[in-house]
Design a binder for these strands. Structure first.
Lengths: 116, 116
DNA sequence: CGACCTTACGTTCTACGTAAACATA
DNA sequence: TATGTTTACGTAGAACGTAAGGTCG
């Protein structure tokens, strides 16, 4: 891992909300070991402890809570992005006939295209 | 690809800014074919044409410009997140001695830990 | 003992680069 | 012909799951 990806961000949010890696893994349909490894890699990447482990679960450290706030903002940004794009996909905005028919720009697409 | 990752977002921003896939690939140190494939997968995912291709380069469609705006916001969120985390990594905020020394929580860490 | 986290390890699958093909000014 | 995009394909590396190990209440 060379940069924080939003798969890890979503897993981290789930872990903080569920309180244990095991429950977060179940909620996200992934093995607990995979979650554990992603979290360890994340902590190695940012070089800061994000979770305080115990036998009853995990808890975010101060740095972990800071990351949690940013992660939620970023995920909200993703939701907004996908919401707007789905409007285009539905044809409500600016998708021309050639794309709706062929799912790609082709010579059949009249130029100048309304989206270009 | 099952969801938009920020590697693709950064590549998309580069493509829009450079005007051609080739120059964006050079700027991001990746092969043009890899960029092309990521963009095609992205368009298949959102089911909307994002770029208008030609032999002189590419141009964002209306949907592509919408995505570009969101992508820049998200990347800015990432930058802010990493900036705050690097403050913790530098030890300026809330990192206790045990982590700075051993790079992990250990039994040496006094409890209650200031970060827990 | 039960619940949880972690490590080891084999495997699957994603994402890359190379090379070739295609299109247009 | 030069420039740019796309497709085919083989491969390296990332990420997953299973299984085993370890800790603590």
């Amino acid at each position: 891992m060379w940069q924080i990806d939003q798969v890890t961000l979503r897993l981290f949010i789930a872990v903080c909300e569920e309180g244990t890696i095991a429950r977060a893994a179940e909620r996200e349909f992934i093995a607990p070991s995979a979650v554990s490894k992603r979290l360890a890699d994340l902590e190695a990447l940012v070089d800061v402890a994000l979770l305080s482990r115990s036998q009853r679960g995990v808890r975010a450290t101060a740095a972990g809570e800071a990351l949690l706030r940013h992660a939620r903002l970023i995920m909200r940004g993703h939701e907004r992005m996908q919401a707007e794009l789905s409007q285009y996909a539905a044809g409500a905005r600016g998708t021309c006939a050639c794309w709706r028919t062929y799912r790609r720009w082709s010579s059949f697409c009249p130029r100048p295209c309304p989206n270009s």
